[in-house]
């Protein structure tokens, strides 16, 4: 876990931002808008997209073909954002997203990445021992399921479309979305129906 930034780091950031502004690279307003946009985003957006894909075949097709367009349909402005790609889990394939080089994450639809996603340990181990990492999250894949690690290295941002859990027949989108957690949207966990809720 990273320590809180010290005074030197904050002073360095202030000098860096001042230099960017002096060079005309960014304005104060653009920085504020970007921060506000990320503050507004949260995993609830991604969860709603997944729940809609589970219930609406046309939306599912759009989501897998053009994640950015699917996000726009949910009212998310993708202007200036990297393209969003969505990868579909199946009975035989599970996706796990990592960024080994830095911390690329679909912030437009998931908000800020959690600390563990940015940690050197997760970034190193997700590509080297992905099943070990999943086991520590309590995620055990069935025999015969391929685990596909997605190292997010360039211009896309990747989100997972998990499988709809059994026992959710007849559920509406809101109730389905409540099953889809932040962690399931990058594949470290699976959407689960709680025993009591299913009973």
């Amino acid at each position: 876990m990273a320590a809180p930034p010290g005074p030197e780091s904050i002073a360095l950031l202030e000098r860096f931002v001042a230099a960017l502004k002096a060079q005309g690279v960014v304005t104060e307003e653009e920085i504020a808008e970007q921060i506000a946009r990320t503050d507004r985003a949260s995993p609830e957006i991604g969860a709603r997209m997944v729940a809609r894909a589970w219930t609406d075949p046309a939306y599912r097709e759009l989501l897998l073909r053009d994640g950015s367009a699917a996000a726009e349909q949910m009212g998310v402005s993708m202007a200036g954002a990297p393209p969003l790609g969505v990868l579909e889990d199946t009975d035989t394939l599970h996706h796990l997203v990592v960024c080994t080089l830095c911390s690329c994450y679909p912030r437009m639809v998931l908000g800020y990445p959690p600390h563990w996603y940015k940690s050197a340990a997760y970034r190193a181990r997700a590509v080297r021992d992905p099943r070990g990492v999943l086991a520590e999250w309590g995620t055990v894949l069935p025999d015969g399921m391929e685990l596909r690690v997605v190292d997010s290295t360039a211009d896309y941002r990747w989100m997972v479309l998990p499988q709809r859990p059994a026992g959710t027949e007849g559920w509406d989108e809101t109730r389905l979305a409540s099953l889809v957690t932040r962690d399931a949207l990058v594949g470290v966990t699976l959407p689960m129906v709680a025993e009591r809720a299913a009973a």
């Binding site: 990868l87 996706h95 590509v127 080297r128 021992d129 992905p130 099943r131 391929e146 685990l147 596909r148 690690v149 997605v150 190292d151 997010s152 290295t153 360039a154 211009d155 896309y156």
Partner: peptide
């Protein structure tokens, strides 16, 4: 990649 892991698992990279 690292000579460890489960046969059949894959990695997808840009």
């Amino acid at each position: 990649l690292f000579n460890e892991g489960a046969a059949g698992d894959t990695l997808l990279v840009e």
